[in-house]
Amino acid sequence: MCLIGQILMDKTKLTPARILVSFVTAGVILGALGIYEPIYKYGKAGASVPLPGFGYALAKGAIKDVEKYGLIGAFTGGLKATAAGVSAAIFFGYIMALVSKPRTKK
């Protein structure tokens, strides 16, 4: 996974942000098509920790909630499934910003 990212970073002039966006979107699409499921079963954390796993969780959550709650599920499912990661990132990000300062690069 990271290998593909590195090739993209070195070979193209894409910025990391663009790569992240395309990775997550790719994860969503693969998740929706049901392709990511077997990868996840096989790779476990190897497939859930990288960002396409994040996209996969978004897609899976949306589908699950649609099944459960109908149309509104399309809007609730994605974020619900990824709430832990996003909230953790915001919370820890805030805490880290409070306690530490950026250092100059050596």
Partner: peptide
Amino acid sequence: GVSSSVIVGLIYY
């Protein structure tokens, strides 16, 4: 990510 998951949900629905 979220926008595309909403689209996926809608299509699925």
